[in-house]
Simulated assay, not measured.
Amino acid sequence: MRTIRVVWGSASAPTAMASYDAALAEAGVENYNLVSVSSVIPAETTVEAVGTAPDLGPAGERLTVVEARATTAGPGRASAALAWAQSVDDGPGLFYEAAGEADREGVERRVREGLAAGQGLRDWEFTDPRVAVESRQAEAGAYTTALVLAVYGESEPII
């Protein structure tokens, strides 16, 4: 069975890109080229919330991800959430993402609402939804990024 790992991280730094890179490092995926996809979980796939990714292959390779990400200049708060539900009997499933300057509860509420709307568009019987939320307060003078990623499998050569 194939595996999708849900990872998360947050960090502050002097630039927006540096805070994003540091948040990726906290999630364990800073050395890969990320390729974003929309939201469908393939059938016969296990989704595991792991926090920090294990070694997924050589640096510089491609990782396929669904990404929830918020970056803000302090003061403020960056929050990101990823929700998912799979259909019963190892069928396909969905990821939904939400992000912004809301608190944890606000971004979680929005991602649950989005997932429920997506489930309503499909004629699948779903398991109970799961949610991962990352949120961090941004200090004045710094950029802060919060992210949650669903990482599909392991890395693949990009060239």
Rank of each mutant, 00 (worst) to 15 (best):
T145K: 05
P54G: 05
S39Q: 15
E48N: 14
S19T: 03
L121S: 10
A116G: 08
E113M: 11
A13L: 02
E108W: 08
Y143F: 14
E67D: 14
S135P: 12
D103A: 04
R130H: 12
E156N: 12
G51T: 03
M17V: 05
L94V: 08
V65L: 08
Q86M: 06
G74Y: 02
G76V: 07
Y143C: 02
V37C: 10
S79L: 02
S135M: 15
A116M: 01
T64E: 08
W8D: 06
L115Q: 06
V65H: 14
T64Q: 06
S79Q: 03
V88I: 13
A116H: 06
L34S: 07
A98H: 02
G57W: 00
A73F: 04
A132Y: 06
S19I: 09
W84H: 07
S10A: 09
W84E: 11
D55P: 01
Y32V: 00
V111N: 00
L115P: 01
E67K: 10
E26I: 06
A49N: 01
G100D: 05
L94Y: 09
V7D: 09
T72F: 12
A53P: 02
V148P: 10
V37K: 14
A140P: 13
E44K: 15
F95N: 00
W124S: 03
A11V: 13
Q137R: 13
L94G: 11
E113G: 12
E105C: 01
E61I: 02
D89K: 14
I41P: 05
I4S: 06
T46C: 03
V47W: 03
P54R: 01
A73S: 02
L24M: 15
A150F: 08
D128A: 11
E139G: 11
G91K: 03
G106V: 15
A81T: 07
R109G: 00
V151M: 06
A13H: 05
Y96F: 07
R2L: 09
L147W: 09
Q86H: 05
A102K: 04
P75C: 14
E113T: 13
L149Y: 10
G118K: 07
A146I: 06
V7H: 11
T3W: 03
A11N: 14
R62L: 15
N33W: 04
V65I: 15
A78L: 04
T127Y: 06
A85E: 03
G57I: 08
Y20A: 04
A85Y: 07
G93F: 02
G9H: 12
S79F: 09
T3D: 00
A140C: 05
P129C: 08
G91Q: 11
A49P: 04
E26Y: 14
R2Y: 05
F95V: 08
A81V: 13
A117N: 00
A22W: 08
G60F: 12
V37S: 06
A25T: 12
Q137W: 12
Q137M: 10
I4E: 01
A25N: 09
N33R: 08
A140F: 09
P58Q: 04
L56V: 12
G118T: 03
L94T: 09
T145N: 01
V133H: 02
D123R: 05
A16K: 12
A27V: 13
A78C: 05
